[in-house]
Nucleic acid binder design. Sequence first.
DNA 1: CTGTTAGCGCATTCAC
DNA 2: GTGAATGCGCTAACAG
Lengths: 339, 339
Amino acid sequence: MVTIKDIAKATGCSPSTVSRVIADNSRISEKTKQKVRAAMRELGYHPNLTARNLVARSTKTIAVIMPSSADTSLQNPFFSEVLRGIGSHLHSRQFSLLLASGATETEKFKEVERLVLGKYVDGIILLYSRLNDPILSFLKEQEFPFVMVGKPLQYTDDIVHVDNDNIMAGKDITEYLISQGHKRITFIGGATDLVVTIDREKGFETALTEAGLPVTEDEVIYTEFLKSGGREAVEKILKMKTKPDAVVVSDDLISIGVISTLEEHGLSVPGDISLASFNNIYFSEIIHPSLTTVDIRIYELGVESSKAVIKLCTDQKLDTKRIIIPHSIVYRNSVRAVE
Amino acid sequence: MVTIKDIAKATGCSPSTVSRVIADNSRISEKTKQKVRAAMRELGYHPNLTARNLVARSTKTIAVIMPSSADTSLQNPFFSEVLRGIGSHLHSRQFSLLLASGATETEKFKEVERLVLGKYVDGIILLYSRLNDPILSFLKEQEFPFVMVGKPLQYTDDIVHVDNDNIMAGKDITEYLISQGHKRITFIGGATDLVVTIDREKGFETALTEAGLPVTEDEVIYTEFLKSGGREAVEKILKMKTKPDAVVVSDDLISIGVISTLEEHGLSVPGDISLASFNNIYFSEIIHPSLTTVDIRIYELGVESSKAVIKLCTDQKLDTKRIIIPHSIVYRNSVRAVE
DNA sequence: CTGTTAGCGCATTCAC
DNA sequence: GTGAATGCGCTAACAG
């Protein structure tokens, strides 16, 4: 391997000079710079990143912590999309992206510990949130630079996080349904311990209440995310004395299952039941019917979270701990107006 | 930061002894091991991974190169799934996973160059293949340990790659369609410069030929992957003098678009047209109709490719350059038998 | 069994 | 402007 010393010898100058040329130090004459650079090219020199990181006491790499690899929610295109946003911005800032996971929560914790304590990464992005997450406590206790995508269950004012205003989003989409003449609306949510689910449902209820529509417990159904593909949810709906004329579904992915199950039971969307959901993943547009959904700008969630971690690891100030990405409704064909 | 020296001082022994304790060297007395470990715990010592990597001349991290982040194919759940397989196995072998990409091909090349020449990773997994890919030439020229997921366009016998037997898969699924009584079958493929597309189509043709069914050019349609969601493809079909009674689609994702477009035109799957495709992504099961598709075991593709790179960077022998993951057909509801 | 020495490849202080 | 010396934190000879 060709090192800084080799090219020092080749050019007849000292290693420190070479190092300065690499850093493009202004106190080096143009002449020697040229000479040194020529030698670097000829000998095929390339700086050893590990050595550099060691002295710099920084790796310029950010770890992204995914849900446990067993978690079925990983199937959600949401993750590829945030990852794309994160990767794109990190790269533009010359940072590397380390993808970390683990089969179990314990393994994941060990991995985070290894990376943080071993100073292998400068910052961390958490792509999920769990109640009483030991990783969270650990990171806080270490005062390690990290940000979370989504809303933390605890310490909300304390943890830097990038999120949508999901309460508002839930309210907005529900109001839209109401404005289209729907009166009997049911909410179908994913895992109940996810803040997104809770927030969106909260917005849903607010909208109903403000519109003077009744909110019965019956009107909220939770379903195992992905597992049944919303099958159970639909079965519950079918058993209702009066069926809803519209449903708000907390995730596009669940919508797919809901629609197909509905169809199997001879119910058409939006013919018999209107449906609106959240995320606006790629599929929402190509499936039939195309989904009216809240675009939460997943890519931007990724970009902003990486902007935030980079700020944190470079000791820059953040204006706020809670960074909100605006949402908007994409109107497509899963909702129809009733007279 | 607490280093090896600190705990050396604290225990009154030398740094090397501490280092040996970390490595659990057998020539250290149990007594001092205990003592040293106690000190490590008390002072909160953790080995600095960068320093360790520097002397080890290895980082135990593998870079996964994704398609350009602009590439729409990234939307394909295929990637999350291979990534999951790769991550899971790498982690089990104590390797880290660096996710690398770039906005353009040039940027991606620069990034790979930086990582390889900078010795920041021990090996590379390529998640795509492009004709005349400079990255490929570079890696080969550097004799850097890398494997590719999918079949390389060139140097097929020369590049370690993990793939399905897509020709066979194409043949199998087509034969199944034929066995169900279908006679006029059309192939709908994604990007024509992808070897998967080519191979699957090849298998398709073979099956037709062997069954004595005619193969006209007309029977093969290529569509922009994801872009139109198979819309164009369907429009071409609708213009045919005699419509096919079945289609083989080269990717589940395209199927979704094809089915929904077909429905918009009043054609039902499998009622009017049977459909079968490849990959068996999560959606295939929950959409309506559920897809009869070739399960290519995406997760395993990931696992095997990481097994292979690890072997390569640890100088182990590989039995073969071409590692084949077996496929199987998953029979669901998008195909019906005709009399 | 343990300590001493050296060095991984680079950046940075201090001299000149 | 440039060089010499020092150290980042760790491991690996070589001694003893």
